[in-house]
């Protein structure tokens, strides 16, 4: 550290001569660059984007191919299933129950204007099973599990633990990535199924206790208009979301650079990219299932 009393003069001194010595070449290069700078920036961004897409595709292909090739690590898989499935239950349960409750309240307000209050139960169950259950659970799990994966794998990368795995003749893709991918694909549908039930129950609570529906007819309405496809499409979404969450968590963690800051960046990127991919793929799967 420089002496605090001398630092003001230092900064003035060092700042002043910088632009002074050779203004001419600087200006000239700026001018020629200026014309191309804009294009160069766009080019660089696009190249970086495709580089990332390429890397991610290679990573995905490698991860998926390792899923079907032994050796497998059942102990790791079980651990991840407990971590992703069991420990996410409270988060998913809370999210869906309040979503179901608010959905009942809001749709009641809307339908009352058309005297169609009877549709509340149907709207709640269809919205929860088709959309809100998988999407909200996916986003919550992306924050909870995706971030944890990126942080854990990223820390293992920057502390050379992934290199250590390789030197111990253990493929890190098989040991770290595959169990997380498979566990997330299996557990997310389970979570969403539980979340569906809890969300519908949330709607039921509000419907019966606050909006004075008859309990039996609320349940009747719920069942009558629910189709298998509603639930199945939600579960397919959940599996895809699980895959995306684990993939982004592992990919970002696996490619972490630098120390704590690098891991922080990976965690942020994992959560943001997983969330965005969930919303995009949600639209595409919906289109696939329900577009007429």
């Amino acid at each position: 550290m420089p002496d605090p009393t001398s630092s003001p003069t230092l900064t003035v001194d060092s700042a002043a001569p910088n632009p002074a010595p050779n203004p001419a070449p600087n200006e000239a290069s700026n001018e020629t660059l200026g014309r191309f700078n804009f294009l160069a920036v766009i080019g660089r961004i696009i190249l970086a984007f495709f580089q990332q897409v390429g890397r991610l595709s290679m990573f995905t292909a490698s991860a998926v191919s390792h899923c079907v090739r032994p050796p497998f690590f059942p102990r790791q898989l079980l651990g991840q299933m407990v971590e992703i499935g069991y420990y996410s239950l409270p988060v998913v349960g809370l999210t869906t129950i309040f979503s179901g409750m608010v959905l009942a309240l809001q749709s009641y307000t809307g339908f009352a204007r058309f005297s169609a209050e009877g549709a509340v139960a149907t709207v709640v169950v269809i919205s929860i099973t088709r959309e809100l259950g998988p999407v909200l659970a996916g986003l919550m799990v992306a924050g909870r599990v995706g971030a944890a994966m990126a942080a854990e794998v990223g820390t293992m990368r920057v502390t050379e633990q992934i290199d250590a795995l390789t030197t111990l003749s253990t493929n890190p893709m098989k040991y770290l990535v595959v169990p997380r991918l498979v566990a997330a694909c299996l557990m997310l549908p389970c979570l969403v199924l539980v979340g569906d039930v809890i969300g519908v129950y949330g709607g039921y609570l509000i419907g019966v206790n606050k909006l004075d529906f008859n309990a039996a007819s609320y349940i009747q309405n719920t069942w009558d208009y629910l189709e298998t496809l509603d639930v199945v499409s939600g579960l397919v979404k959940a599996a895809v979301f699980g895959f995306l969450i684990a993939l982004m968590g592992c990919y970002m963690g696996y490619n972490s650079r630098g120390g704590a800051q690098g891991v922080g960046v990976s965690v942020r990127n994992a959560v943001v990219s997983a969330s965005i991919l969930i919303l995009i793929s949600n639209y595409m799967i919906t289109e696939l299932f329900f577009a007429q």
Partner: peptide
């Protein structure tokens, strides 16, 4: 091969003995 890393690179999710035995169990 056996390798001693600069930062030791022990697996922090495993206990000490599981670290030492990692190659024996997995490999």
């Amino acid at each position: 091969f056996g390798m001693l890393f600069q930062s030791a690179a022990l697996f922090d999710s495993l206990t000490v003995w599981e670290n030492v035995a990692f190659g024996l169990i997995q490999g």
